[in-house]
Amino acid sequence: MSTCKSLTRICAQSSRSTFLPTTQRRHESTARRHKKLLHVQQAPSFTPDRASPTLIFNPPSSAPSVYHTPLKFLPREDKRKDLYQKALNLSMHAALRTHTPNVAAPGTPLSAPSNLPPRPSNALPPAVRTPYDKKYHLTDVEIDDIRRLRLEDPEYWTRARLAEKFECSQFFVSLIVKAPEKAARVEGEHAKMRARWGERRTRARVDRARRKELWGRDE
C-alpha cells in the first residue's frame, strides 16, 4: 500500500476554498509507526559499552539510609574515613577532567541524589533560613533596660518588639524577663478561643500536634 496520496486527490483537495497550506500532511496511520514511537531508548547506565560484565549502579532517588554514617561522623581511627576520602579525591579528579553539565549542579531539579560521594562543587544549595552568627553583644545595662521596659508596660513592649529593638532573639528576651500576669491573661484568651472551636477544628489541631510528634521519629 502506498502511503502517498495520488496526485488526483491532492488536486481535488486544492480546489476547495481553504486557508490551510496545500502541502502534504501525514498522520500516524499504521500500527508500526505507533510501536516505533513507543520504543523508548534504554537509559545509558543500562547499556554497557563493553562486552565484559560491568557493574550497573542506578540507585533510586531516595533519602540516604541512616545506617550509612556520614563522613564527618566517623571517628578518626575508622578505616572507612580514609576510604571515603580516597573515593572523594578520585571522583574530584574525574570530575575535574571531564566536563560536568550545568543542569546536574546541586540545587537544580536534575541533580540526582546518589550514594556515591557528592560531586565536588563549591555551590551548596541555598539555606532554608538565613544563617546568622550569634553576637553576644548585650551588656548588663541593656539587659536591665529590657527587664525594666518589659515590666513597665508588657502590653506595648512585647517580646517581638524588644527583640527587634535590641537585636536579639525573642527566646533570649523570655530568658531575661517574664511577665506572668500577661502570659496568664493571653493564655486565658486563647483558652476561651479554643472553647469556641467546633469538633472538626479541634480534631484537626490534635492531629496536627500528633503529626508533628512523628517528625522527630522521622517516620
Binding site: A63, V66, T69, R217
Partner: peptide, 16 residues
C-alpha cells in the same frame, strides 16, 4: 526530619 536523620546517623554508627 533532616536533623532527626542526622542524629540517627550519629547514634547508629557501627564500628567495623
Amino acid at each position: 526530619r533532616a536533623a532527626a536523620a542526622a542524629m540517627k546517623g550519629w547514634c547508629l554508627y557501627r564500628p567495623l
